[in-house]
Amino acid sequence: MRVTLLGTGDTTGTPTVGCDCDTCQAARKRGVERSRFSVHVENERTGESLLIDCSPDFRHQFLTRDVPLPDAAVVSHIHFDHLDGLGNAYRLFDDLPVYAADEVDPATGESVADTIRSKYDYLDRVTVEDATPFDPVRTCGLDVTLVPVDHPPLVCYGLCVEDPETGAKLSLSGDTSYDVPAESRAALAEPDLLLADAIVPARFCEYHPLGGKDEGADGTPYTFGTKHMTREGALALADDLGAAETRLVHLAHYYPPEEAFAEPLAVDGETHEL
């Protein structure tokens, strides 16, 4: 299983458009980027590949990274930075199965799968496939499992991607607070690689209108506001899950430049062999 991080940034990415903060300037000088979130998983046994989330930066990501177009996709939730790149499927695919959760979101009155169907009803080459949380779906020769996480007010899912032949396992926290349900933690546990949402350092919670929550034993907030983990929260989750390797993703440009490119914060284009 070959994992390529196509997009490792948050909603605005790094560098952020029109921003001259020290971190955005440092990213430009280094020639690195954190575009909107997306992950490419290639099954080298079968020659097939899976796209996890459809970034609005889809075109740029596939033009700049040496990866094939996907044979299937899976969408974690309906926020634009994870979904709206699906429009790029126009004229690129004969058929693209897109897997999404089938449980109804009380906030929208429909499932993620149904929202994609209605929003992209004009894409006749996209086939939306319902997936039930915790029930693995076999696609591209891999077992993909959606697991509920905590990203209010909308439902959102983390993912496990496992190779049934080799046992290799990729886990993604999804966009989430630290308050990931126990059953989901059990499903995500013991990955060879964990990609964990870590939007800002914990000390930045003082700048959020809602502050932080889910504090560790020393009082460090593991959640920034209500929707995303802090760096410290993501690392605590990695320890709890027993991850062999962890890369922090969905990163904001608010990390100061002396921390923004330090381990284990990821940048676009990284590849990992599992």
Score class of each variant (00 low, 15 high):
R30A: 10
R30S: 03
G31N: 02
V32F: 05
V32Y: 02
R34H: 01
R34D: 00
S35G: 10
S35N: 07
R36K: 05
S38T: 04
V39F: 10
H40Y: 03
V41A: 08
E42T: 12
N43C: 14
T46E: 02
G47Y: 07
E48V: 04
S49K: 10
S49T: 12
S49L: 08
L50T: 13
L50G: 11
L50M: 08
L51D: 08
L51H: 06
I52P: 02
I52H: 01
I52N: 00
C54A: 15
C54P: 03
S55F: 06
F58L: 03
F58T: 07
R59G: 11
R59M: 13
H60L: 12
Q61E: 12
Q61W: 03
Q61H: 01
L63A: 13
T64R: 05
T64E: 13
D66L: 09
D66R: 05
P68K: 13
P68R: 13
P70N: 03
A72V: 00
A73K: 03
V74S: 07
V75N: 11
V75S: 05
S76L: 11
H79L: 13
H79N: 09
F80M: 04
H82A: 10
H82K: 12
D84S: 15
D84A: 08
G85C: 00
L86Y: 00
N88L: 01
N88S: 14
N88V: 07
A89R: 09
A89D: 01
A89V: 05
Y90P: 03
R91Q: 11
R91K: 11
L92W: 09
F93I: 13
F93G: 09
F93S: 09
D95F: 04
L96H: 06
L96F: 00
P97G: 04
P97H: 00
V98K: 05
E103R: 15
E103D: 14
E103M: 07
D105H: 11
P106W: 03
P106D: 07
A107L: 11
E110F: 06
E110A: 12
E110W: 12
S111N: 01
A113R: 02
A113Q: 06
A113E: 08
D114M: 02
T115P: 03
I116P: 10
R117A: 03
K119C: 09
K119Q: 15
Y120A: 02
Y120I: 05
Y120D: 00
D121F: 15
Y122N: 08
L123G: 03
R125Q: 14
E129F: 06
D130R: 13
D130F: 01
A131C: 04
A131N: 01
P133S: 10
F134V: 06
D135K: 09
P136R: 06
P136C: 03
P136N: 08
